[in-house]
């Protein structure tokens, strides 16, 4: 509690402020600019009950540190990011794991967020239980908002069981054919020539599904392919050197794509949202969730 109060004091009530996690995806949505005060969210795991499948964690905690503790009970969360990235950063960016079809969307992982608003007051979004229809879905709004509506200090995340067995395969079977022969693969990536498929579950089931794909010409590989650095929404043919995450329509590309136009009607709601939460635009100034290619 004291950590959160300290975080609130750091954010204060005036002046431009941004929250920095691991800084691994710092330029997403635009640099915050000069003269902006940088604050950090508390870190550390405050409560974890594996039987509840929830974890209460400071937003400044690294994903690696969290994963280590959860793995002791064979659990994980749906957040992903480069080494050094934090829970709060992963939520602010809101990118999905390439294993999205197994672990779920990043935005569904956040059950509760204790935040500091632009007015310097603390507020809570969501609730501590795995199911909650009490009020508006603020948590989903916060995920992917790049810290432009409020700054997350501490969160409760949903955990999921780590599967007993996991296997990656690569081959020229099309994603559509993979879907036809497998029940809910964890990941399907497509590089224009080959599918890269992750199967997860109980060992015997995984081996059986893998056998069918191997019979179709796929081979076992160590893990996913190395993903190019830029995330773009696929709008036409897959660019040279790109890898498509089939489930979420995001192409990992060697080059950044142009920012797409946003429907003015959508932008109108978004602008009102920003104005309602942060009327003086002090939170993560210059950063815009709509200035990203995907």
């Amino acid at each position: 509690m004291s950590d959160l109060e300290e975080f609130r004091n750091e954010v204060g009530t005036t002046g431009s402020v941004c929250v920095k996690g691991g800084g691994t995806r710092w330029d997403v949505g635009g640099e915050v600019g000069q003269g902006v005060r940088v604050v950090s969210a508390p870190s550390g795991i405050d409560a974890y009950d594996p039987a509840e499948m929830t974890v209460l964690v400071g937003a400044g905690t690294t994903l690696t540190a969290l994963a280590e503790v959860l793995a002791e009970h064979r659990q994980e969360v749906a957040l992903a990011g480069p080494v050094g990235s934090t829970v709060g950063g992963a939520l602010a960016v809101g990118w999905n794991s390439i294993r999205r079809q197994r672990v779920g969307f990043a935005r569904d992982a956040l059950l509760q967020a204790e935040c500091v608003g632009a007015d310097g007051k603390r507020f809570k979004a969501g609730g501590p239980t795995v199911k909650n229809a009490s009020g508006y879905e603020l948590c989903r709004l916060l995920v992917g908002s790049l810290g432009t509506l409020a700054l997350m200090g501490r969160v409760i995340l949903r955990t999921t069981p780590i599967p007993e067995w996991s296997l990656w395969l690569r081959g020229s079977v099309t994603p559509a054919d993979v879907v036809k022969s497998c029940y809910r693969p964890a990941s399907i990536l497509w590089d224009g020539s080959y599918s890269h498929v992750c199967l997860e579950g109980y060992e015997a089931d995984v081996q059986r599904e893998a056998s069918a794909l191997i019979d179709s010409g796929m081979v076992k590989v160590q893990g996913p392919p190395s993903l190019p650095p830029h995330r773009n929404r696929l709008t036409g043919d897959l660019p040279e050197g790109a890898i498509l995450d089939v489930a979420i329509g995001v192409a990992h590309c060697p080059e950044a794509a142009a920012i797409q136009c946003v429907d003015p009607a959508v932008k109108c709601i978004a602008d009102r949202m920003k104005a309602n939460f942060d009327p003086h635009r002090r939170l993560n100034p210059n950063r815009d969730p709509y200035s990203v290619p995907a």
Binding site: R107, Y136, R140, L149, R233, A270, A294
Partner: peptide, 29 residues
């Protein structure tokens, strides 16, 4: 359909739409 009688498409058929998750905010409203 919003209260000003305008129409807006929230979300995306595949994956997440760019920007705030207004689709997620709308559900449960």
């Amino acid at each position: 359909v919003l209260s000003d009688a305008s129409t807006v498409l929230l979300g995306a058929e595949v994956g997440d739409a760019v920007g705030y998750d207004l689709r997620g905010a709308f559900v449960g409203g």
